[in-house]
Write a protein that binds this DNA or RNA. Structure first.
Lengths: 232, 232
DNA sequence: CGGCAGTTTGACAAGTCTCAATGGGGGTGG
DNA sequence: CCACCCCCATTGAGACTTGTCAAACTGCCG
């Protein structure tokens, strides 16, 4: 896809309707582009905050702790806007799960421009609040849930984001490996695998190959995710 | 403190400089006020998103999972703006650690008004991004750190927010109990207590009574917090 | 079809949780 | 102002979930 087209995808989804031509072209002048192949981490070691828009593909936002430990902070898909902080206590990077096309900006310039269009800041704020909400939910899972609850909750959440309906079931193709899932849930590969087997033997899911998943009993999965009753 | 004064505290810290009188008074007209005594949770069970400004005191944002498990998602102090979501998979509430004075708003009305002042949305966005950053750092701690690293990191972070310098050391009075700390770090009271003892016997901290803490060796604590080297 | 990376499964170790008892701080009432 | 008492914190022993190490298996790609 041409840079022109990539930018337009960003503009349609993020710039508010009726944005002035001037703002449109100013964003275009500071936009940068990159294609990341699976496994690439284009922002690794960045010394300034970045804002990236995922035009296509999927990616994981990874934080690195000492002793080579990695924590997946969030997964992102086409249409998502991701803020990638410069290194603080932990080093962050955005790593492609599938080949990705990205439009990105230095965060400070992006914010400066955005402030000139109030609808634009509001759009970014909405997306940030959504990211905050997801991060809070992940916090609860990491802090207070068992391995099985973590995986059940993960599958339910993912099916909302990338799943398709198939009769009463939901199906999806996970773009991430068992290691990525483990690094996201604070578990090891082995524990993730054991819990997949457990959910399979409980009849809650079926798997097709390495990445195909069918959720057979959404209700049962949600119950096992350890949510509070009020959440229907 | 009078409602008038409470609102002015909010206005000075959150409304942008040079905001119009109209906006100022519109915010004032939707503002609500409450005083929470230690242990009170004024937004428990709210069915709509709320935005709260902490004028004085300190509070914890708590998420409730099944089986009575609680996860402290964030601690907040005077001057903080907190977004409290209506219940989703988990029920959230803001609970006072010390007596609090709060100014709050229904989130939807707040956002609608904010959008009319671009500087206002930008201010809220900045604060949200800071909250997101803190939440991400917590995610790393919960997912990939040992009990000792969690507590060391917690003490370092808290000292940045509420600590005072005392020669080469940093001192603080923690407003939260061991249970709150455990619920924040995904640990039990007992494990938190054991790690306090361990850090004490390593000569990294001293404690005065239940809540007084002196951090004696910041460098040593940061190393034990499991941060990556690059973070000086 | 063959090789390899990723996944599954098993046995064992370790860190944290649970349950229980003791100790101490700090607030309250005399 | 002091003493008492209750709640929180600390410490200990044993159980359990998850991590670690190792081996076998299997999709998937060339």
């Amino acid at each position: 896809m041409s840079y022109q087209d990539l930018f337009e995808r960003f503009a349609v989804q993020v710039l508010p309707l009726g944005v002035s031509d001037g703002t449109h072209s100013r964003f275009k002048s500071i936009a940068r582009f990159t294609s990341a192949r699976t496994g690439d981490a284009p922002f690794k070691g960045t010394s300034t905050d970045q804002i990236a828009f995922v035009v296509s593909g999927s990616a994981k936002l990874v934080a690195q702790a000492s002793h080579g430990r990695e924590q997946v902070v969030a997964f992102h898909f086409a249409g998502d806007l991701v803020s990638i902080p410069a290194s603080t206590a932990h080093a962050y990077s955005l790593c492609a799960l599938e080949d990705c096309e990205l439009v990105y900006f230095p965060a400070d310039e992006f914010m400066r421009l955005a402030e000139q269009e109030s609808g634009m800041v509001a759009e970014v704020l909405n997306r940030s609040l959504q990211a905050l909400e997801r991060c809070r939910e992940k916090t609860v899972a990491l802090g207070r849930k068992t391995a099985q609850e973590k995986l059940a909750g993960f599958l339910v959440t993912m099916s909302d984001r990338i799943g398709t309906c198939s009769g009463p079931n939901r199906e999806m193709v996970l773009p991430m490996s068992r290691k990525d899932i483990g690094d996201s849930l604070g578990l090891t590969i082995e524990t993730v695998s054991r819990q997949f087997s457990e959910l399979r033997s409980l009849g809650l899911i079926e798997t097709q190959g390495r990445s195909g998943i069918s959720l057979l009993k959404m209700q049962g999965l949600k119950e096992r995710a350890g949510h509070v009753k009020s959440a229907a």
